[in-house]
Structures are given as structure tokens and as C-alpha cells.
């Protein structure tokens, strides 16, 4: 007990100071977005919004609530994320389980075939043409099926099974006559909560944040995910801010619109990020485990 209470050395003070500084560097930009979203953009633009909101108003939020496109995007993203992640997790866990069994005939070959795709691929254009040939462009499928399994996640999960689930446990069950299906559902799955949690998080965040796929594969505006809509909002507002050659009457009208557009930028960024932040604390405790199993070879 006495030894536990170590003295604070200069080294400690320095370390904690740096740590505190890092905390500020990471948090402040996020905090700024939040306070800017409820402040008058005129104050934000001249640097008057630093610690607290100024000219408090919720116009940005009202506008976002009344923009159907954002909600369509939000709904689409929720659908792609839930459906996509469900497919991801089921396929990854089952395939990883099969690959973790030494008895699987052809195991090394299958594994090589999968790992190879991590290091080499056909590239953007052949993939795009494949989607086109399969008539998947502009359908919801193109947002769900092409990313159904990530080779990396599959190998991580397989390593988890090999390392964390004792073979003897299953062995005993199988000697008693249990099938692979039975041991998988009654022994392996209950022990796999950490890896399922981590995979759900990885895949889920991937779907929610994905932008490029939606941009290149979809043109039907009713199918666009939130990130694509968001990008449009962010860059269109920018364009208005950059155009300077205008008459005075246009200017005043534009100024008002621009004010709201500025706020909408902040608000829509928050709307797109909040769902992630909501699930983050629940899954956070599994991170270390999930990342460790994957990166250190078992």
C-alpha cells in the first residue's frame, strides 16, 4: 500500500501535461462543431465563438429537420447498415469457424485464396463493370452484397476461434455425437461475444461511413446514403460562400440563405456522427481484444 503511492516526479508532470494537451487537441474541434451548430454564423466567422455558443439559435436544426433528403439518406443509411452488417457478421463468423477447423479438407487452399485478395485486386474499374454486368447498379443490393465479407475481418475472426476457443471443449461434445452445427451453435457462439461485438462495430461503422460506393454505384436519389447527401450539402454551401460577384439585392438574399446553409453544415455533420457515438461506448471495451487477436499471429 505504501509503495503504491509513488511520488510525482517531473517526468510524471510532463507526461500528464502532454496527455492533457492531446485531449484538448482531439476534443476541441469536435466541441467547436457542436457550439457552432447553435451559434449565429456571423459570430462564428469572425472568431467570436470560442468557448460558448453566441447568438444561440436552433435554425440549423429546424432546417435539417425540414429537409426530406437528409431523412431519406438517413433512412437509407440505417437500412444499408443494419442489413449489410447482419449479412457481414453471419457470413464472417460461419466461414471463420469453418476455416478454423483443421479437418476441413482444402483449408490451406481456401485460406490462401481469401488472403490473396487482401493484397491484390482487380481495381475500381473492373469492379464497377462487374456491378454493371450483374445489373446491380442503382439497386439496394450494390450497397450490401459487394462488401459481404472482408478478408481481413475473416482472418481476424478465424484467429480468434483458433486462439480463444479450446479445441478440447468441442472435441468432447463431438465425441458425444454432436454435429459441427450443434457445437457451433451451443459451444462456439456463446463464447464469441467479444468477436461478434467487434465485427459488428467494424462492419457497421464501415457501412455507415461509406461514401464512395454510394457515389459511384447509385444515381437514383431515393437510394443515396446519408454520406453522399451530406457531401452535397457540405460542398454546395461552400460554393455559395465562394461566389463573390453579385448584385446587392442578390447579396442580401444570399446572405440570409448562406447563414442557414452554414449552420446546416454543422448540424448535418452532427446528425451523421451521433449514431456512431451512441453505439461506441457499448462496444468500446471489446476493442483491445478484437484488435489484438487479429494483429498478433496466433
Amino acid at each position: 500500500m505504501k509503495k503504491k503511492k509513488m511520488k510525482w516526479t517531473r517526468f510524471d508532470v510532463l507526461i500528464y501535461l502532454i496527455g492533457f494537451l492531446l485531449l484538448l487537441i482531439v476534443l476541441y474541434p469536435l466541441y467547436f462543431v457542436v457550439i457552432a451548430s447553435v451559434s449565429d454564423p456571423n459570430y462564428v466567422n469572425i472568431g467570436q465563438v470560442i468557448f460558448l455558443p453566441k447568438g444561440f439559435n436552433l435554425d440549423g436544426y429546424k432546417r435539417v429537420l425540414n429537409t426530406p433528403e437528409i431523412w431519406t439518406g438517413f433512412r437509407n443509411s440505417v437500412f444499408y447498415t443494419v442489413a449489410g452488417t447482419a449479412l457481414n457478421v453471419v457470413m464472417t463468423i460461419t466461414a471463420a469457424y469453418a476455416l478454423s477447423k483443421k479437418r476441413l479438407v482444402g483449408r490451406n487452399f481456401f485460406q490462401f485464396m481469401i488472403v490473396f485478395t487482401m493484397f491484390f485486386g482487380g481495381g475500381m474499374i473492373p469492379t464497377y463493370l462487374l456491378m454493371k454486368n450483374m445489373q446491380m447498379l442503382d439497386t439496394v443490393w450494390v450497397m450490401i452484397v459487394p462488401g459481404a465479407v472482408s478478408a481481413y475481418n475473416l482472418i481476424v475472426t478465424k484467429t480468434f476461434f483458433v486462439n480463444s476457443i479450446p479445441d478440447e471443449l468441442e472435441e468432447a461434445a463431438r465425441i458425444d455425437g454432436a454435429s459441427y452445427f450443434k457445437t457451433f451453435f451451443s459451444i462456439v457462439l456463446p463464447l464469441s461475444t467479444p468477436i461478434i461485438a467487434v465485427m459488428t462495430l467494424f462492419y457497421g461503422i464501415g457501412h455507415w461511413n461509406s461514401y464512395f460506393d454510394g457515389m459511384i454505384y447509385l444515381s437514383d436519389r431515393n437510394l443515396l446514403p446519408l454520406q453522399v447527401i451530406l457531401k452535397e450539402i457540405l460542398s454546395s454551401a461552400q460554393m455559395a460562400a465562394n461566389s463573390t460577384s453579385m448584385s446587392t439585392s442578390e447579396m442580401t438574399l444570399l446572405a440570409e440563405q448562406q447563414k442557414i446553409a452554414e449552420m446546416v453544415k454543422y448540424v448535418s455533420m452532427i446528425v451523421a456522427t451521433v449514431p456512431v457515438l451512441l453505439i461506441y461506448p457499448f462496444i468500446q471495451k471489446y476493442f483491445k481484444k478484437g484488435i489484438m487477436v487479429g494483429s498478433l499471429k496466433g
Binding site: V26, L230, L234, T273, Y280
Partner: peptide
């Protein structure tokens, strides 16, 4: 410090 990783590229 982990959190920024989960912010989407667009945001």
C-alpha cells in the same frame, strides 16, 4: 483519442 477514427471521411 480513439473516437476521431469513427468520424466518417465526408464529415
Amino acid at each position: 483519442t480513439y473516437a476521431p477514427y469513427f468520424i466518417s471521411t465526408v464529415v
